[in-house]
Design a protein around this nucleic acid. Structure first.
Length: 474
RNA sequence: GCCCCCAUCGGCUAGCGGCCUAGGCCCCCGCCCUUUCAAGGCGGUAACACGGGUUCGAAUCCCGUUGGGGGUACCA
């Protein structure tokens, strides 16, 4: 069997959300797993809604995700001549015909059918126009679309890789529009036409396109081409089980990138919506995904996108990074998002090791390590805990004295000294340390205390403890 | 209205007739790690939508019901 050819056909009409990314990913994983080829094709025939920005954005997002392509990017608007020639040929052969019905006539027809409880399909009225009638309409200056002749009887069926046998009644399809009155092709035509011309063997797309399959198969038949293998993926839903949209909060790939989600983590997460490797494997690298991905293991039921699991998974990927790579990713992230912290790469590099275990996203770095870059900003809730602690000033006093007397300023020595102070004061470490942590980091959730002190330096640490002491007693 | 798809814990899922008194992960809740914690460890709550079949045996197969989703455009 020749290697499969798949395509990624984004329509550049808006932002690229995680659902689109998931579809592209499955196509890509399938091709890379099987040694097949990936074609990138922008379906921009909708001139009104397609934008140049969306095209740039889509390419950018795909590149960031590490999803590459072997052919393209093609653009349907640059292939208009091809479609037009094909249309003329179809009309010539009687497989398609011009339709002069107005929007009002069509609406009235639909209403009538609705009332009669019949399917809302076009009656095919213009199909039987005589050449004279056609000429009369042309002469009257009536605009026309081109419709494809659908079989009046019988059924159309596919053996979908994820759904099995699916069948439609041809009579229920209606002659659909394949060319608009401005001469441009609709999705229903351009998409299968290009799939044929580009040698696409596997159409891997979301299930909302499933109902359009019989109409596309009619294009294959009209063009005398062999149909592809179909795999209809389950939808990616928002928490309300509805199609993903902006209402659902952060759902664009870029938003997650800006929050500090690693592309490999997003890819890993997305692979798990609608697909699984086995009953227990969750964390996987991209090469592992490529090696393990098969369409047969795609699950037919829709899935809800869960940002919390994505963040957890991102934490896993962050921790799995070698320290230097983690530091590099961090610096890169800070620079890209325009963080002022990026101006001090040495400091970032020093801070990286003490936060790597803590972060779920790179975006949390500032909250964890900001205290190392400038004056502390104290969290009110954290300070309230200090004030409520009767042993706070005792702890801070003991810490001040201990730290001032430490002979070597490194985490190990600090650790030993503070442990001794706990014993001396008769305080549990958690009690003694809490006020110190708040004093130097301004928060109760922070990197390890000893490492934090070491990096902050003795002078600044003592200054902050003194300040806290002063604020507590004064 | 008509057509199509889907149906296991709150979420993602494993399960393709007996291995299931249904497993894993996220979330949540406890406990532990004589340092917080969003890290780590241990433990816990929690599901086969319902009704009929088929079968010695059904989460798994069939039919129906209900529920959810999608489509029904000169959007893709």
């Amino acid at each position: 069997m020749p290697p499969p050819v798949v395509r990624m056909p984004p329509s550049p009409t808006g932002w690229f959300h995680v659902g689109n990314a998931r579809t592209m990913l499955f196509n890509w994983l399938y091709a890379r797993h099987t040694g097949g080829r990936v074609v990138l094709r922008f379906e921009d025939t909708d001139r009104v809604r397609s934008t140049e920005e969306a095209i740039t954005q889509a390419e950018d997002v795909l590149r960031w995700l590490g999803i590459d392509w072997d052919d393209g990017p093609h653009r349907q608007t640059q292939r208009l001549d091809l479609y037009a020639a094909a249309a003329a040929d179809l009309v010539e052969r009687g497989l398609a015909y011009p339709c002069y019905c107005t929007a009002e006539e069509l609406a009235a027809e639909r209403e009538r059918r609705q009332a009669e409880g019949r399917p809302l399909v076009y009656s095919g009225r213009c199909r039987s126009l005589t050449p004279e009638e056609r000429r009369a309409r042309e002469d009257a200056g009536l605009a026309h679309v081109i419709r494809l002749v659908m079989p009046a009887e019988g059924t159309t069926a596919i053996e979908d890789v994820v759904r099995g046998h699916v069948e439609w009644e041809n009579a229920l399809q209606g002659d659909h529009v394949i060319f608009r009155s401005d001469g441009t092709p609709t999705y229903l035509f351009a998409n299968p036409f290009d799939d044929i011309r580009m040698g696409i063997t596997h159409v891997v797309r979301v299930e909302d396109l499933l109902p359009s399959t019989p109409r596309q198969l009619a294009v294959y038949a009209a063009l005398d081409a062999a149909p592809p293998t179909y795999a209809h993926l389950p939808m990616v839903l928002g928490t309300d089980k509805k199609k993903l949209s902006k209402r659902h909060g952060a759902v664009s790939v870029e938003e997650f990138r800006d929050r500090g989600v690693l592309s490999q983590a997003l890819v890993n997460y997305l692979a798990l919506v609608g697909w699984s490797y086995d009953d227990h494997t969750t964390v996987m690298t991209v090469p592992e995904l490529i090696e393990r991905f098969t369409l047969e293991r795609v699950n037919p039921s829709p899935g809800v996108f869960d940002p919390e699991k994505l963040e957890w998974l991102n934490g896993e990927h962050l921790r799995a990074l070698p320290p230097e790579e983690f530091a590099a990713a961090l610096q890169d992230y800070l620079a890209r998002t325009g963080s002022p912290l990026a101006a001090r790469p040495e400091r970032v590099a020093e801070a990286a090791p003490i936060v790597q275990e803590k972060l779920r996203t790179l975006g949390q770095f500032e909250g964890f390590a900001g205290f190392l870059f400038g004056p502390v900003t104290t969290d009110p809730d954290a300070w309230a805990r200090v004030e409520a602690d009767p042993a706070a000033s005792q702890s801070l006093g003991a810490a001040r004295e201990t730290l001032a007397g430490v002979d070597r300023w490194d985490a190990e020595t600090i650790h030993a000294a503070l442990a001794a102070a706990c014993a001396r004061e008769g305080l549990k470490p958690r009690v003694l340390y809490m006020p110190i942590r708040v004093a130097i980091t301004g928060r109760t959730v922070a990197p390890g205390l000893y490492e934090s002190l070491e990096l902050l330096g003795r002078d600044e640490s003592l200054r902050r403890i003194d300040a806290a002491l002063g604020r507590l007693t004064g």
